[in-house]
């Protein structure tokens, strides 16, 4: 099944790519293409031009600097899942990547593409909100800036990227002692996307929860941070009661849930609560074990 015709550019540097994206009418960037090409084949999207950033050098490394990991935008999901650095320093990142789509999709899909597409049913965005990631972008004239995950995800398929801006890397904190992260999802039986995804990052210090980040995807138009639920954790012992209380608080953080034929908004909120409970229990279990 063919897409509509388009012009194709293959820049060799980020600068060139950004220039093309700002100068060519209707141009869109493509890397792995696993969000864009399916939409183009169904002619839901018909960009006039594609700017293929897939070969720009230096954008797929995974490196550690200080207390954070930097993942190049072109790192595929399977590269992240297989990365020793990710597995040791931020296991929840590797684990999340390992559960995106299916093996073939993971071999092509990239972290930068997933974040830029901002599909509410995607996995990475949810984790990025929970973990407090920073997204590095480059815009016209080579201007670089960093956007926090909280500011990056604006709405349904909408990000804080300005026209022509490209994601170049994602920075996530490494897991410190006493810290653990878990990502769980209710997988759609057909698409494999997350109907609801929950990422929970907890820090336990001196027998109580010192910090918590809970990200919830699939329930509203963008990945949410469950701040009421987080507040219910911090300062409390990681007991079943604490976990239950946090899970119960999730609904309050999820206004205007979306729904479809498979799962209503009400059910999505419920799933978010159950998955939060389970993710927290697992995360606390890992820290105390």
């Amino acid at each position: 099944m063919q897409t509509a015709p388009f012009d194709y550019y293959r820049p060799e540097t980020i600068g060139e790519a950004v220039d093309l994206l700002t100068s060519v009418d209707g141009a869109r960037p493509i890397a792995g293409g696993h969000s864009l090409l399916p939409a183009m084949k169904l002619r839901v999207a018909s960009p006039a031009a594609l700017v293929d950033i897939g070969r720009i050098p230096g954008l797929s490394e995974i490196t550690r600097t200080g207390d954070s990991l930097t993942i190049g935008a072109l790192a595929t999901h399977s590269a992240v899942a297989a990365s020793d650095l990710a597995k040791s320093d931020c296991p929840v990142l590797a684990d999340t990547a390992a559960h995106i789509g299916d093996p073939q999709v993971r071999n092509r899909g990239t972290i930068g593409g997933s974040l830029s597409h901002a599909d509410p049913a995607a996995d990475y965005p949810t984790l990025m909100r929970a973990i407090g990631a920073t997204i590095h972008v480059t815009g016209s004239g080579g201007g670089e800036r960093s956007i926090s995950a909280d500011d990056f995800f604006v709405g349904l398929f909408m990000t804080g990227l300005a026209a022509g801006e490209l994601v170049t890397a994602v920075e996530v904190p490494v897991m410190s002692a006493g810290q653990s992260g878990v990502y769980l999802k209710h997988r759609h039986p057909a698409s494999s996307y997350a109907v609801v995804g929950v990422a929970a990052i907890v820090t336990v210090d001196g027998g109580s929860c010192a910090a918590a980040g809970i990200g919830i995807g699939g329930v509203t138009g963008k990945p949410e941070r469950a701040s009421t639920a987080e507040a219910a954790l911090v300062g409390n012992a990681p007991s079943n009661e604490t976990v239950e209380a946090a899970a119960a608080a999730v609904a309050g953080d999820l206004a205007d849930p979306i729904g479809d034929h498979y799962a209503s908004g009400e059910f999505r909120v419920h799933l978010a609560s159950v998955l939060t409970k389970r993710a927290l229990a697992e995360a606390f279990g890992e820290v105390s074990a």
């Binding site: 293409g33 090409l37 399916p38 084949k41 299916d102 093996p103 071999n107 057909a190 698409s191």
Partner: peptide, 27 residues
């Protein structure tokens, strides 16, 4: 299929299994 689900088109691209219906020849 036309939505990158079925995998019938799987080939090895530089040694990795990919769905060739969701890769452009130019890529």
């Amino acid at each position: 299929c036309d939505t990158t689900q079925c995998g019938a088109c799987t080939v090895h691209l530089d040694g990795a299994a990919v769905k060739s219906c969701t890769v452009l020849a130019v890529q």
